[in-house]
Design a binder for these strands. Structure first.
Lengths: 164, 164
DNA sequence: GGATGAATACTCGGATATTTATTGTCCGAGTCATCCTGG
DNA sequence: CCAGGATGACTCGGACAATAAATATCCGAGTATTCATCC
């Protein structure tokens, strides 16, 4: 099992959008080119982020995407769930209720221990992602990146973003 | 993304094997029938568990599978990793190093913040699974199950297990 | 009657198809900016 | 010179293929048992 690769794309793109001046937008083409990604496929994931109310789209020329909320209020978990889905990692199919020893369904009101343990682990994973916001990611990036690198990125983005 | 369904099968089967008397074995056919599973497909997963040194196989008539270690020393994480693989949930493909603004590889010695956060969440998930042993699962099952159900299961298994 | 040998039936083990999910691509609908024309 | 309208180009949005992974299956290798045979 592995997480969708689109999750990585989405997180990086949201981080880039978070670095834009307030109100400014960046089109899919620029986001794709920035990381060397497929433009059409990235569009699919950006669409999912828009449906999840994380980013919003402006149509027409000079349109593009921008964050719908400040980076401090967007958790990594939201981005992951928007792209990869909200279903739990482990889905119990209740195989204990199958087979020759199966009882009447009312006998299985208590979830099986495996289900419970898996749900706990799932919660631990999601909690860890919930505590990290996009703003945190930006902070760490700006802390470790070299000054010239930050300037180059800013310049490159400034040449393609659209101020509303 | 979802965990392989085989993980559920493997966990339940290991739990059943843990309930056997010491040294006794149970063939694939019985394990599959017990939960109403495909015998041939289950064999594939049992094989993976055997490669991971969690269970061991005895060939020939009166052969079958049994645990290779006491249930207290087998964690849920081991079973999950044996069947689903040991790769992390999130695999960073370093898209930050792609695109027109890419620098020389030596500039990326520090892992990106997204990678780090994902690794932390991954660790939280695995830690949660590591703290739960198969013995814990058995305990909880025996605590909540009805007496007659336990007896029926024991009887059914006793009729198909092989004492070494 | 006991021991030896070959045949046998049952087990696991890995290589092989089928289905499902993910990845990747394409074309159409909508919208804003621009340009042209007329007053 | 200014206003209005039609045009056009660029954007997003959802529907349509190709690839990879998971699911499911089959047949062969190996082993302990069992039975028959011989001593």
């Amino acid at each position: 099992m592995k997480l969708s690769e689109g999750v990585e794309w989405g997180l990086h793109c949201v981080a880039v959008l978070a670095a834009l001046p307030p109100g400014a937008t960046l089109p899919t083409k620029a986001l794709a080119e920035y990381h060397g990604l497929s433009e059409t496929y990235l569009a699919k994931h950006l669409q999912a982020l828009a449906n999840a109310r994380i980013i919003e789209s402006l149509p027409g020329p000079k349109g593009g995407y921008r964050l719908q909320r400040p980076p401090e209020e967007i958790t990594m978990l939201e981005v992951v769930e928007a792209i990869d889905g909200r279903e739990p990692l482990f889905r119990c199919t209740e195989i204990r209720q199958r087979g020759p020893l199966a009882l009447e369904p009312t006998a299985y009101r208590i979830p099986c221990a495996i289900h419970i343990a898996m749900a706990q682990a799932d919660k631990a994973w999601r909690d860890a992602l919930r505590t990290q916001t996009i703003a945190d990611l930006i902070d760490q990036y700006q802390q470790h990146a070299r000054t010239e690198q930050l300037q180059e990125s800013e310049q490159w983005i400034a040449g393609r973003m659209r101020q509303s």
